[in-house]
Write a protein that binds this DNA or RNA. Structure first.
Lengths: 147, 147
DNA sequence: GGATAATAGTTGATTTTGTAACTAACAAGC
DNA sequence: GCTTGTTAGTTACAAAATCAACTATTATCC
């Protein structure tokens, strides 16, 4: 007799769940770097990294690239400014817009965190073969809609 | 002349970042199912799914399996109980412990969400070949330390 | 068996996020 | 140029997450 019982759903293969769990787990160690060492929140390091990675940007551009809501960006920018990690400069072609750049201090922190990130990434990547990791990154980028 | 410039860090290949972005993005659509239709939070559906998937469990066991902090579980359980989705039953071998089970209503919601989850999972999986998805799930499980 | 430590789960205070309303500046249409 | 609509960014309030302290119960060790 053929089983007509619908395949039971298994939480542990559900992609959104797996992705979230993997993301949470793999963020923990790196989080300590920016949180414990620099008292930064996740959004703050994301802003810092975007400015470090892409140079001068506006809050709007960071919102779009990082897919973070503008209120979170706004608060993260204030915090980073307070800590003298970034400078705001009003665009004088459009005075609603602020150009954001890292200060020397911000760049130093950025580089330090980059080093930590890179080492940590290598550690994670080391769990798999080079081909596997390449495929993983590619698939994640597609899922993240960063194609 | 060989470049001795250290390879510039690229945010868009950093695994924790990719994982988080992919997780956030791929959760959005499914989130609407439990949030908009049932007014549930993420922790609440995770608890619901655990009970649906594994049957009777204690809050402690859910904490460990799902890696969610006990205060979040405690509040999610209260909410689910209020909505009559689950029942608490004191263990009488250890009266600190509560056995949690889904009510009939809870099981109905669970099954509905399972269907949605399964269809959504198939949609996501459809972005890649069967082999690729199998590998992805396997890698995510390792990253999530669910090996 | 009684003191001390450990465990399951809850509660309260603080921090962070999310939502909506807001200000200030620009753009378009007439 | 003046109304209407949009956009960049901020702020205020509500919802949720985090962290520490708490209660009640069980386990340990002398």
């Amino acid at each position: 007799m053929v089983s007509d019982k619908k395949d039971e759903f298994d939480l542990r293969v559900f992609l959104p769940y797996l992705l979230n769990r993997a993301a949470e787990e793999s963020s923990l160690e790196f989080q300590r770097a920016y949180k414990d060492r620099y008292g930064m929140l996740r959004t703050e390091w994301r802003v810092l990294f975007h400015l470090g990675n892409y140079g001068e940007m506006t809050a709007k551009e960071i919102c779009e690239r990082a897919r973070i809501h503008k209120t979170k960006i706004s608060r993260a920018v204030s915090k980073l400014e307070q800590r003298r990690y970034l400078l705001r400069k009003r665009s004088y072609t459009d005075r609603r817009v602020e150009m954001l750049t890292l200060t020397a201090a911000g760049q130093t922190v950025y580089r330090e965190l980059c080093d930590i990130a890179q080492r940590y990434d290598e550690k994670l990547a080391g769990m798999f073969s080079a081909d596997e990791v390449a495929l993983l990154r590619q698939m994640l980028r597609r899922l993240a809609d960063m194609v």
